[in-house]
């Protein structure tokens, strides 16, 4: 089983990111689980979300204590939150940031999204995570995004944001 922890501020789409990543893996035949963890509910407050996936059915409902990867949608959280808390040995940390960030894998998601004329920083980071972990495929992500969000948003815009993150990591 693999476990992902998403850090963001409430309203930045971490819950959607955790579910989209799970939905694509579900399409790819994995068993999945995605859940948010809220504190006091208010926009802008730090929050976490989680994605679990496995080849076998997932039954456990305990908290994710030792994630295999951490995705930080909001770089200002690095000041306030220990994003490495419980991270497994050799675990991956992706941060929405320019250049390098504390030795974490930096993805300039803000700039990549702006370059597409979109605000989908969360989708850029989902694409980047999939490329970094090697699953699911970009096509599976794009198809899951169209199914999950296509009623509200142009699927081409969704696909482009996912591809931008994916390609940034893929090209290294």
């Amino acid at each position: 089983m693999k476990e992902i922890r998403w850090h963001a501020r409430a309203g930045q789409g971490a819950k959607t990111a955790s579910q989209l990543y799970a939905a694509a893996l579900l399409q790819a035949g994995k068993s999945v689980q995605a859940f948010p963890e809220y504190g006091p509910e208010r926009r802008g407050a730090p929050m976490r979300a989680y994605t679990r996936f496995d080849e076998r059915p997932i039954r456990r409902h305990d908290a994710v204590a030792m994630p295999d990867a951490v995705v930080v949608l909001e770089p200002s959280l690095l000041r306030d939150v220990d994003v490495e808390d419980g991270l497994r040995e050799g675990g991956l940390v992706l941060v929405n940031a320019e250049g390098s960030a504390n030795g974490y894998l930096a993805v300039p998601a803000e700039r990549l999204a702006a370059g597409l004329g979109s605000r989908f920083v969360n989708l850029v980071m989902v694409g980047a995570l999939a490329a970094a972990l090697g699953e699911p495929s970009l096509e599976e992500l794009q198809s899951a995004a169209a199914a999950l969000l296509g009623a509200k948003v142009d699927p081409h815009a969704l696909a482009a944001a996912l591809a931008a993150g994916w390609e940034h990591v893929w090209r290294g």
Binding site: S18, Q19, A22, A23, L26, S31, V32, Q33, A34, F35, P36, E37, Y38, I58, H61
Partner: peptide
């Protein structure tokens, strides 16, 4: 169903 643990958890 357990609040949040199931109500807000996405599963197959």
């Amino acid at each position: 169903q357990d609040g949040f643990t199931i109500t807000h958890s996405a599963e197959p």
